[in-house]
């Protein structure tokens, strides 16, 4: 679901449907009741390859001590509000 133009699609939920066309309509009915979105993508669960909780350490821990990957070592000049 994309909430507004310019934003990225965000996962909002899962549903049952016999095919993609009905999945799209079901998603419209289930997830846009309160004006949540302007665009919907549906993806069959079988097409998703996900990381496993068992692999969490190997996948994500190595990034924990690499602070230099964050752009936090720059001096921001005064008066630049939205750098």
């Amino acid at each position: 679901m994309r909430a507004r133009r310019g934003l990225s699609h965000t996962h909002v939920g899962s549903l049952h449907a016999p095919d993609a066309e009905l999945a799209l309509r079901n998603a419209r009915d289930l997830y846009t009741r309160r004006q949540e979105g302007v665009s919907i993508w549906v993806v069959p669960a079988s097409a998703i390859t996900a990381s496993s909780p068992d692999e969490k350490d190997a996948f994500f821990d190595p990034a924990a001590d690499k602070v230099y990957r964050h752009p936090t070592f720059y001096d921001v000049p005064d008066g630049v509000a939205h750098l």
Binding site: L15, H16, A17, L22, R25, N26, D29, L30, R33
Partner: peptide, 11 residues
């Protein structure tokens, strides 16, 4: 017949 259709008809 199914939950998704339930919501659709209510809509």
């Amino acid at each position: 017949p199914e939950m998704e259709e339930d919501i659709a008809l209510a809509n």
